[in-house]
Design a protein around this nucleic acid. Structure first.
Ligand SMILES: [Zn+2]
Ligand SMILES: [Zn+2]
Ligand SMILES: [Zn+2]
Ligand SMILES: [Zn+2]
Lengths: 159, 159
DNA sequence: CGAATCCTGTTATGTTATAACACAGTGGTG
DNA sequence: CACCACTGTGTTATAACATAACAGGATTCG
């Protein structure tokens, strides 16, 4: 299963897979994937990019619902807490998880050229962070890893 | 020179050293460390913790100046751009650099118990990030590395 | 059914950050 | 000196992001 970020892919399949993975996980853990929460996750999967909470809110409203900010933030809180989506701190934005089901510390690449965001492998990074923290007797429970730069296509365009 | 974060230290010396380092760097690079900018850096050094922009604004106002948000944000922009301070994305807050003068990718430890923030060695982490990004043909220009968890004293208190 | 719990709707507000424009100081140039 | 370009500041207003607080509906379980 490749979940690379800057490549094209069968997006319909990608969305369906992520949704069923979320349903499965919720069933296993007794979590309620309600209509609101599912809809927000669907939007994030559909758009396949980092979106602000108010941008999501606009989508919900355009669908005819009279949603308010807390509606979106509650759904996002559920999705982030349970690993179905991640918050990109640098952007104050949210993105669907590219590795649903796998336990992982998320790590992101943010292209300053085109704004696209991809989740990257984080095992080695997470180990380096834990080791550096251990050197100061600090115990890590969560980490924010976000790299800004130029994605392959923007690098090419520049050259 | 030890710039550990969770230890006590000669803070007067620490402030004076950071300020003179900033002055020196500005002189070398033709940057203007104006009164406003210097004052904001002094406050960050004095408090020795992560502070929000509006918290800094309150301090300036308590000193009798009728400062407005842009005043603080401009000073912070200068300090962050030139490496005298860093932004902690997770906290929407700012902290004076603990390694002034050295070129480095900042990396932070944030204690969820007491709120203290420390800058940690980042060389190995930065390398791991660049390598993971290179695997996706992504070129990193800047990175956000912030680990949340428990600092030594909070770990002890819990045990 | 009754009670507890979780989820949602709604109003209002808090917090963080920037746009836009006017103006002052500085330093170079002719 | 008159002029210009550049950088920094003051000020007003507003944008963008996020949560508090309370009421009420749905679900579950004994
Ligand atoms: Zn996809
Ligand atoms: Zn790009
Ligand atoms: Zn200090
Ligand atoms: Zn602590």
């Amino acid at each position: 299963m490749d979940t690379l970020g800057f490549t094209t892919h069968d997006h319909g399949h990608c969305i369906a897979q992520a949704l069923s993975s979320a349903e499965e996980t919720c069933a296993e853990q007794g979590l309620q994937l309600t209509a609101q929460r599912r809809r927000v996750l669907e939007i994030l999967l559909q758009e396949h990019r980092a979106m602000g909470a108010y941008e999501l809110l606009d989508v919900l409203r355009s669908e005819g619902q009279g949603a308010q900010p807390p509606t979106v933030y509650r759904a996002l809180d559920f999705l982030v807490t349970n690993g179905f989506a991640h918050k990109i701190e640098r952007l104050n934005a949210f993105v669907a998880c590219a590795h649903p089901g796998e336990r992982h510390a998320p790590a992101f690449l943010i292209c300053k050229g085109c704004g696209s965001v991809a989740e990257m492998p984080s095992r080695d990074i997470a180990r380096a962070v834990r080791e550096a923290a251990a050197g100061l007797a600090f115990e890590v429970s969560r980490m924010v890893i976000e790299a800004e730069g130029a994605c392959p296509s923007c690098r090419e365009a520049r050259a």
